[in-house]
Design a protein around this nucleic acid. Structure first.
Length: 405
DNA sequence: CGAGATTCATGTGAAGTATACCTTTAGGCTTAA
DNA sequence: AAGCCTAAAGGTATACTTCACATGAATCTCGTA
């Protein structure tokens, strides 16, 4: 424990390899967004009427993760807000990510959350949904305003709860007298809009934009630009940027991932007292990111999810040790799950529910659970792991402690 | 031997229940005039 | 009498349970070659 102080002193004395750490963090909004000028101009053009208090067309934006959708929207919206403020225009912007569990993943919660963003206390449950709509309308109608509603990952909420919300939201405009709402929908899923009600579709996607993925060259340019802002000269080792870009390009040109890789690699370099970011740190970074991502998801799950996942992971570890890896199915897991419940003193849920939980864990990408038919031997889900082997034990240990097993 | 029937284990949808939380309302208590 | 607090009543969303039916390919059955 003595050398902790030494380490801290050393840390305080040594030069950080970061010139500006924030630049590489995921919530950073750069001044200019390379290779997205066209989209920025288009969106700005579409949203500009808001500065005359006229309702702009609703926009629908498609693009894979890390293609700059959120970034561009935030960028444009920030600028518009500034200009609006200069001209004393009452323009409110609400940005919401519909994927956030227990925040905006049902109709009630989404509307309630918008209300809260606009500074109104709304209880987490208990009110009728149309009551929440009324509260919401009242807030906007209180004074003449234009509400710019940015719904990120809008496909998630529709997948969960159907397109009724979108219908209600688009219809809301016809009821409003003072104010108006403009909806900007963002989706990762290109096919998404085909599954919604045509009436909603036409009003929601009055304008459509597609964000193409970045290619490796573009990713390199982005990385270079940001690392120039973030690091002192000559910190970034030979070939590092190329490797980051290549990694990310492999994953459909995900710029967010590339930048994260860079940042984590830099942090690892710093922790190792290295004054250069070397290629070897990128591999470590890759693993660390994946681990953190999974750990983060896992740790925020409700207890029953954890027990279920713990059961699955233990079983798969056991099988891995015994070699001759076998498949396992919902029934097996449920039996063991019940045992684990007994050990932790938790009331076991029914198999019906566990089936749903397994399906949800599959959606989270932590496991793969495919429905198969074993013919004469029934129909079930075959469960396999969705995370690398070397992370599994770490998750398992964490779960074990967390559950008190 | 092959087409169709059968079968199993659980997927899946609908409807019902428990829980936690909300607002409203009415009654009781306190307080100030 | 007015004002405030509390508890009961009436209502909702969400997570979960119960019930009942659906599924789909390995296996079985049985007629036919």
């Amino acid at each position: 424990m003595v050398n902790v102080k030494g380490f801290l002193r050393n840390y305080a004395d040594s030069e950080s390899i970061f010139k500006n750490r924030k630049v590489l963090q995921s919530n950073y909004t750069p001044l200019n967004v390379p290779y997205r000028e066209e989209q920025i101009n288009q969106i700005a053009g579409i949203l500009a009427p808001s500065l005359r208090m006229e309702r702009p067309s609703n926009i629908f934006i498609y693009g894979k993760t890390g293609t700059g959708k959120s970034l561009v929207i935030k960028h444009v919206v920030d600028q518009i807000s500034e200009v609006a403020a200069e001209n004393k225009i009452n323009l409110k912007v609400v940005y919401l990510n519909c994927k956030l569990k227990r925040v905006a993943d049902t109709e009630y919660r989404l509307i309630a959350q918008i209300g809260r963003e606009l500074g109104q206390e709304i209880p987490p449950t208990g009110l009728p949904t149309d009551e929440v709509y009324k509260i919401f309308v009242k807030i906007i109608e209180k004074e003449k305003m234009l509400l710019l509603l940015v719904l990120d990952e809008i496909d998630e909420i529709v997948k969960n709860t159907g397109d009724k919300i979108l219908y209600n939201l688009t219809r809301l405009n016809t009821e409003l007298i003072n104010s108006e709402i403009c909806i900007v929908g963002i989706s990762n899923d290109l096919m998404f809009i085909d599954h919604v009600d045509p009436r909603v579709r036409s009003s929601l996607s009055e304008e459509e934009l597609v964000f193409p993925p970045y290619n490796a060259i573009q990713l390199q340019k982005i990385l270079r630009e940001r690392s120039n802002l973030s690091f002192e000269k000559d910190i970034v080792g030979e070939g590092v940027i190329e490797k980051c870009a290549a990694y990310a390009a492999k994953e459909h040109g995900d710029a967010r991932r590339a930048l994260e890789l860079m940042r984590v690699a830099a942090e690892l370099a710093e922790r190792n007292n290295s004054d250069k970011i070397l290629i070897k740190y990128i591999d470590d970074a890759e693993e660390k990111i994946e681990r953190d991502r999974v750990l983060d998801i896992v740790s925020t799950q409700p207890k029953q999810f954890k027990i279920t996942l713990y059961t699955i992971l233990s079983v798969s570890e056991e099988y891995a040790n015994k070699k001759g890896s076998q498949d396992f199915y919902t029934g097996d897991i449920y039996a063991l799950y019940k045992e684990n419940c007994l050990k932790t003193g938790t009331k076991p849920l029914t198999q019906r529910r566990i089936g749903d939980i397994i399906a949800e864990l599959d959606m989270l990408g932590i496991i793969n659970a495919r429905v198969i038919s074993k013919g004469r031997y029934g129909r079930t889900r075959r469960i396999t792991l969705g995370v690398p082997e070397n992370i599994v034990s770490k998750i398992n240990v964490m779960l074990k402690e967390g559950l008190g097993l």
